[in-house]
Amino acid sequence: MSDRTSPASDNLPLPLSTRERGPETSPHPDPLPEGKGIVDAGGGRLYPDQFIHNVAAALAGAAGEQTEVAWRRDRKGVLTGWCRLPSGVALLPAARAVAELQGRLAMVTAYLPERAQEKGEREIAYHFDLDGATLTLTVILPLEWSRVPSLTPIFRNCDWQERELMELYDVQVVGHPDPRRLFLDHSLPHAPFERLVPYSTFTNAATSKALWDKVMAGAREDA
């Protein structure tokens, strides 16, 4: 069997393998002071408490003292952290702090949350990988005229995520180096995901209806 420790014991190091890193591979010139990152000096796993403390300190330092991360630890010991940023302005500094922690951008999710119309709000969640743990930073934006700064200058792989976000939603990504459409055909209207609420004729079930009419008609002929 593997040398994993029991997921039930909270105070042991996370039962995951070590992450190799070389200082020369860091895109960031200033290495973190020892003990402030998400791995120990030898590149090994930190104790969860220390890891959580260091992430909290980095985010609070960058995005303001009121920035809090709620962590959940699943049955296998995997951590997910959830943080709602106090303001849209906090996104850039918070993202830079994650980059300094050697975080990797994993995914960007834009969405209209439940009762979006009523609240007049939308959300964008930025999911980062921190050596196996996932940290989600959520910004809350107004439903109309939403703007976010581009994270592509910090995380190169944010490029496609933001291009896609811009074509599917009415959100402007400020400072994106290449804001062309990505997946959506030019004949399709802009921002199809905005049309979910209210439900429009844009996504009605016209094809289903036409096909089923024929199925029913064909069955009548046979009868």
Partner: peptide, 15 residues
């Protein structure tokens, strides 16, 4: 023939 699971998507123009 029918679009299968993808029928009635904005991005599909079948059948």
């Amino acid at each position: 023939v029918s679009g299968g699971v993808f029928r009635d998507s904005y991005a599909v123009d079948g059948p």
